[in-house]
Nucleic acid binder design. Structure first.
Lengths: 353, 353
DNA sequence: TTGTATGCGTTATCAG
DNA sequence: CTGATAACGCATACAA
């Protein structure tokens, strides 16, 4: 089509100024007389010049304006999780002042050709996830000397982390149930490791997902013998399946179920409904996250509200600091307990009183 | 920290070869003797050189390996929509062979500082959305001479589009209901314009969202007088609200509701349940999208299955073609009708027969 | 198979 | 406030 795209040199020539002057007009780093500014802008207009080439500018300034966000999973899966979605929102907000955008990256690119951590022009990277899979990504990034922040991940070393007080928070839910008088409590957990398929968590099971382990430990702090069933994902359908298993047998049925996510909790409620059980009359249910579960009304889950958006924002701020050469502290965010209408004292077992 | 990052020149020097040779070792564009390759790799290793600087390489090759994806809305909102999520998956797949990653961009950056369309190093852009808001983005991109593809958008001009056969598809659902004998049918639509708040769609209302208009027209093709209620978003809760309005009055209650998305349809079903109505005994419900609605089981919506992932893939392929200098055709994808268990003949009004 | 030379489009620096 | 100059780090055409 066009013979060649105009460059800032062309613009300068046409405006009768030096390239450096034209450059300054666009960057605004130095003041320019109104007259020359107008001439330059005019020339740019005539040439169809829309501004400095980002790549060339990056090469010169050393900044690309791009922050990579690395997920362990298929992108589609990641965004199915409302918490991650909110986190992305916060992240987008926080890196905007930096003038940066978010580049979506997957941890393990389908072999061969890929964009990725090693070949993308990154100013910084945010690793999102929990298991140790990120190890490799972490290494790649650090080798390149790119600042990195980890959200809820076991990064070890001196990488700034953004974390949640999972154990303390989850313990509040458990304590709340104990305060109500519950004795028989079960828990539905998030996956205990990558590739996990739903099932009971054996006492000696190895739990490689930190979030899962922390929240489970919290439940055990209060109810040492609570049976745990791990779902294969955080979704209503998975919670429903787990709920069926947990609530099916009237003999062993718990009077309360602690779910590690609101979606799982919503599923457990559905399971209870299905079995003709009243929530919270027959069985109490707690969640975790504090998201709005679409379609769950009129139930309002008793849950731990985690600052999901703030998580992203904190990560974004940390990234911004690192990019500016400052160092960023690790941060632990706290969740707050919110009582809804899905928890109540357990049904009195024998007496109708 | 480090005095200065090693460059390929440093590596070459240390390996005792020319920079171009070292370059070739990393790009693999030409064969190199095993001996020199080893020497170069070795030198790189010692120097902590992790590969060519992406930015410098981009400047030279003219490719950044980045495809921008532009949303009209807040990122969080966009990813709440399962269809968009799937689309992103397809897109990610299709641009991977190109060696490209996806950069998230918002249509209207909160004024002032921002990343954006004009300042990001882009090989191509994909515009996602329906209203005319994208006009500005479109202009910015084209001015830069960047290839662009529009998904379900009114791009006009000669921009390749990826579209859906909304009207034909939706008509199938309407015809299906007519075939079952339904006479009184209402429809719940997606928003009719940006910023719309739920409410009835007046006959003369201006509908600026193309998808909404097409699907509504299709319903009107079959049921010219069908009342239409437009939701403010595609979600179960919005569908529930709409369903309550539509189904509340037994006198005017439709025997079937055509929802413009599966989420809305799911909400209508909930509304029916709430009112003690049987689906599909008392009221039939159809959706659109063919996604898995978390928590809707045992209902399986009668719906139009749209190739959401394929939509993204097609866009990705189009982008790839454009980047390679070929031209890409506009494409219209077709949705397929799928009968679930939420539609049945209308209840016989008077007779028990 | 390897080396040489050149320019991709900018912007920081510093002198005028 | 403006202009000259020198990199930024690399990939390619071409010659050897």
């Amino acid at each position: 089509m066009s013979p060649r795209r105009a460059t800032i040199a062309d613009v300068a020539r046409r405006a009768g100024v030096a390239p450096s002057t034209a450059s300054v007009v666009f960057s605004g780093k130095t003041s320019v007389s109104d007259a020359t500014r107008a001439r330059v802008l005019d020339a740019a207009d005539q040439l169809g010049y829309t501004g400095p080439d980002p790549v060339a500018a990056s090469l010169r300034t050393g900044r690309s304006g791009i922050v990579g966000v690395v997920f362990e999973e298929h992108l589609g899966r990641a965004f199915l999780d409302p918490v991650k979605t909110l986190m992305m929102d916060g992240l987008a907000d926080a890196v905007a002042p930096l003038g940066a955008g978010l580049l979506l990256l997957r941890d393990q690119e389908p072999a061969g050709t890929g964009p990725t951590l090693t070949t993308a022009p990154l100013d910084a990277a945010v690793l999102v996830g929990c298991s140790g899979l990120l190890r490799e990504s972490l290494h790649a990034v650090r080798a390149r000397g790119i600042p990195v922040v980890v959200i809820e991940g076991d990064a070890g070393e001196d990488v700034p982390r953004i974390d949640l007080d999972n154990r303390e928070a989850q313990r509040q839910a458990a304590s709340h149930l104990r305060g109500l008088g519950h004795e028989r409590v079960a828990t539905v957990t998030l996956p205990i490791r990558a590739g996990w398929r739903a099932g009971w968590v054996e006492p000696d099971a190895e739990i490689s997902v930190e979030v899962t382990r922390d929240r489970l430990d919290a439940v055990r702090d209060v109810y040492p013998d609570a049976p745990a069933y791990a779902a294969s994902a955080s979704s209503i359908d998975e919670g429903l399946a787990a709920g069926r298993v947990l609530l099916a047998d009237p003999g062993t049925r718990p009077t309360a179920v602690i779910a590690q996510s609101d979606l799982l909790g919503a599923g457990v409620i559905r399971a209870a409904e299905e079995l003709g059980l009243d929530v919270p009359g027959d069985v109490s249910v707690t969640g975790f996250d504090g998201i709005v579960v679409d379609g769950l009304a009129p139930y309002r889950l008793t849950t731990l509200v985690q600052p999901a958006t703030e998580k992203g924002r904190a990560a974004g701020r940390a990234v911004a600091a690192l990019v500016d050469g400052d160092d960023a502290p690790s941060i632990s965010l706290t969740s707050t307990f919110r009582e809804g209408n899905t928890t109540a004292p357990p049904p009195s077992p024998a007496s109708v009183d």
